[in-house]
Nucleic acid binder design. Structure first.
Length: 518
RNA sequence: GGCUUCGUAGCUCAAUGGUAGAGCAGCGGACUUUUAAUCCGUUGGUUGAGGGUUCAAGUCCCUCCGGAGUCACCA
């Protein structure tokens, strides 16, 4: 134990001791709660309405026992007010010395602190100013809070809620997420929405006849996306393993195994830089469905996001970064070539080699690292000129073949494949193909992509022979989609950093020196 | 990884190179319907860490740690 209590904490330790000396267990076990705070308040309102309607004899007092954390205290000589909060809401406590007795009243004033957990028994009532409260008859400490949380106060000023002293230090909020959650109710709401997002996705896909599956996170060969992996090691098997960078290849094997439609929601790991939209581990949704092509997937994406937004926020319209965004179908569909031509003035089809396209881009004054492959140049045009403008949901489709090794060609167009990405608020939200199911073509693509990588002096993903073997048994035509769930949650909660929608975003280690001391 | 910027009391923030401060919280007191409760009094600091310049450093310089932003990376 390396805890060195600060002055405030020592004060609380003293109170803890006083409670114990008075025979009070500050961390008792059993709790008899009759209502959540939300339930207690709701039941009281119902009772009030009934009483008003009947205008007969006043109803018997509504007795409740509620539990929660003390969020604020306003002490008086003979009467105290406090706010108690649990996971469902907040209610005021009205504590009179005559009701709880001198001893308990003094205990409350002297030895209880903000953020202690409390059980109170009493009747629901309204104070003179009309505030719904619990008129407390008995109170019991459930858990002493030894370290103080930030004290947040709010006030109504000109109809606006103004917050004072909110816990807002980004770093500490993420390092001590528990304190962030305890202190900031709106942060708790983010993760409720996140949970609703995941369950809405499942509800929708289950309803469409998809089967939810789980595939390996530890993989002997990684693949299915363009990313550097994390590596790890299995001691007993004496085997190097990779944390998956996508689910793609394992899910498509299941189509060979004759499941028609499968999906997985889970964690991907990519050993790359972090940014407002990148975390080393993130939650991905991928689905694959047999006998359809990417036009079907476009429709399903539109329907899925509308459904999820409706479930999570009660509307297909969302407000993000000050923009009103309509998720209901149909979304704009824009061919990649047209989008780039229109926004950048460059028609890459007229510059069909990397050398030609690079020259055209440099003539436009675009700065480029040397020797990018053709498809990467096109991605750069997309990222620089098109992506930031795509505020309303937009499906960009038909991508260059050389950066899309798992997508089927556009018939009669050797340059393009049946791939689309959809963008909302300038952010890539999903990536989809008509999946390549020709094992000979797939092998050729693997070879091509590895060659491309070799030229870039980058590590290519190892060739997955087993995946090719699976495909040789026969894979039905199909289309698959990958959607970043974290980014979707960002959209639905109007948060502009992925860290805000991850309970424990990755942060650099801090204070290692302190640990080595002990 | 590059560049920019930030790090001061438990929390939110001040402080021309010149005695480190405020509000909230805490502690003591007053108050039987308060609500950012109010009123009186009061405690609280290795200014992220280390070095340097200076008579004097929270402030200027260097290194390191951490955060944020941005660029790069992200078949």
């Amino acid at each position: 134990m390396t805890w060195q209590p600060n002055k405030l904490e020592r004060e609380r330790l003293d109170k803890l001791e006083r409670l114990q000396q008075n025979g009070i267990d500050p961390f008792p076990g059993a709790v008899a709660r009759t209502h959540t705070i939300e339930q207690a308040v709701a039941a009281f309102k119902v009772q009030e309405e009934n009483t008003a309607a009947s205008s007969a004899d006043p109803a018997a007092p509504l007795m409740v026992s509620v539990c929660g954390r003390i969020r604020s205290i306003r002490t008086g000589g003979k009467v105290c007010f406090a706010d108690l909060e649990d996971g469902t809401g907040r209610v005021q406590l009205f504590i009179r010395v005559d009701a709880v007795g001198e001893a308990r009243y003094e205990m409350f004033r002297r030895d209880l602190d903000l953020f202690d957990y409390l059980q109170v028994d009493g009747q629901m009532m309204r104070t003179r100013s009309g505030e719904i409260s619990v008129g407390v008859n008995q109170l019991k400490v459930l858990a002493k809070s030894l370290s103080p949380l930030p004290v947040v106060k709010t006030a109504e000023v000109d109809g606006q809620t103004v917050t004072y002293g909110a816990f807002s230090d980004t770093e500490e909020r993420f390092r001590q997420r528990y304190a962030d959650l305890a202190s900031n109710a709106e942060v708790r709401e983010i993760f409720r929405k996140r949970a609703r997002t995941a369950s809405a996705v499942r509800e929708f896909l289950d309803g469409e006849g998809f089967l939810e599956v789980e595939t390996p996170i530890l993989q002997p060969i990684y693949g299915g996306a363009a990313a550097r992996p994390f590596t790890t090691f299995h001691n007993q098997l004496n085997q190097s393993l990779f944390l998956r960078i996508s689910f793609e290849l394992y899910l498509k094997r299941l189509l060979v195994g004759m499941y028609d439609s499968v999906y997985e929601i889970g964690r991907d790991f990519r050993n790359e830089g972090v940014s407002f939209k990148h975390n080393p581990e993130f939650t991905m949704l991928e689905w694959y469905k047999a006998y359809v092509d990417y036009t079907y997937s476009m429709t399903l994406c539109e329907r899925l996001l509308s459904f999820v937004a409706q479930k999570v926020n009660g509307s297909t319209q969302i407000s993000y970064d000050g923009n009103l965004i309509e998720l209901a179908p149909p979304w704009r569909r824009w061919r990649l070539r047209d989008a780039i031509r229109e926004m950048s003035g460059i028609d890459y089809v007229e510059h069909p080699t990397a050398e030609q396209l690079e020259k055209a881009m440099r003539e436009k004054g675009i700065e480029l690292p040397p020797e990018l492959p053709w498809g990467k140049l096109i991605e750069k045009l997309l990222g620089d000129f098109v992506e930031p403008t795509l505020i309303q949901p937009t499906i960009i489709y038909d991508y260059p073949r050389d950066i899309s090794p798992f997508a089927k060609s556009v018939p009669g167009d050797p340059m393009h494949v049946q791939r689309f990405e959809f963008y909302i608020s300038g952010m890539e939200m999903g990536n989809a193909f008509t999946e390549l199911n020709d094992p000979l073509d797939q092998e050729q693509r693997f070879v091509e992509i590895n060659k491309l990588f070799a030229e870039q002096e980058d590590d290519a993903a190892p060739l997955d022979e087993d995946y090719l073997r699976a495909m040789r048994y026969g894979m039905p035509p199909n289309s698959g989609v990958g959607i970043g769930i974290d980014r979707l949650v960002m959209l639905l909660t109007d948060r502009h950093s992925i860290r805000e929608v991850l309970l424990y975003p990755h942060l650099r280690d801090k204070g290692r020196d302190e640990e080595t001391e002990g």
